[in-house]
């Protein structure tokens, strides 16, 4: 990856997050950049601040101090963080977080309900995304009728619904067997190289981390040398 400033998609600048009136440090002075189409793995023991970092980068939580910049714009200055989450990034969770009453096809459409798109456009886009993740024949199935690996593929398709440039993944293979986990990683690789999507992935799996362009190691809320 080049280090040109124009390639920087997201930048954390001395991000600190304190809980319990400042008595618990979740993140301390975290600074790093993520480039376009870059895959960065975040590793560290439980409680080291990995998920908090994802929440702050994904604007689900505000930092106590410091700032996150996306395409050069501070999140704190954005008129709508909902719009940022809806259009600029996709979340992939360890436990998939699919809506149980909706089919795979409908789950993928959920983020699109916030956009000005016709019903037909939403369905067509959702079908295309399910095709991409190899679930064409499973579109009408409810999550409970899908395997774990298939559920995560649906979740990834949902994350890509509004064509975001960034995926934030929180241990996306944590609940999957080795075979399914490899399939998900191949999917991420395709997304990077074919669609230029950047990926920031929290993982405990050293093999998955080894495929990353860079590894951010966290301990006690701070970035440390790997």
């Amino acid at each position: 990856m080049t280090e040109r400033a124009a390639d920087v998609l997201l930048r954390a600048d001395r991000v600190t997050k304190l809980y319990l009136d400042g008595h618990v440090l979740a993140l301390g002075d975290v600074s790093f950049s993520l480039h376009r189409a870059e895959y960065v793995a975040v590793m560290g023991p439980s409680g080291s601040g990995k998920s908090t970092l994802l929440n702050v980068l994904g604007a689900l939580d505000r930092p106590t101090s410091g700032e996150v910049y996306f395409e050069g714009q501070a999140l704190g200055a954005m008129p709508s963080l909902d719009r940022y989450r809806n259009r600029k990034l996709g979340f992939v969770f360890q436990s998939f977080q699919l809506l149980p009453v909706l089919t795979a096809l409908e789950n993928v459409q959920v983020p699109m309900l916030e956009c000005v798109r016709s019903d037909a456009q939403r369905v067509a886009r959702a079908r295309a995304l399910l095709d991409n993740v190899g679930l064409t024949r499973r579109a009408r199935h409810l999550p409970k009728h899908l395997s774990m690996g298939e559920r995560q593929r649906v979740a990834i398709a949902r994350a890509l619904a509004n064509d975001p440039p960034l995926l934030l993944a929180d241990e996306p293979t944590g609940n999957l067997d080795t075979f399914s986990a490899r399939g998900i990683m191949r999917l991420f690789t395709d997304l990077r190289y074919q669609h230029g999507v950047s990926i920031l992935m929290v993982t405990h799996d050293p093999q998955l981390a080894a495929e990353a362009d860079r590894i951010l190691q966290m301990r006690d809320g701070r970035l440390v040398e790997p």
Partner: peptide, 13 residues
């Protein structure tokens, strides 16, 4: 949890 997921994927309040 489902409502939180909706907020996470960018649904407005």
């Amino acid at each position: 949890r489902e409502l939180a997921v909706l907020r996470a994927v960018g649904w407005r309040k």
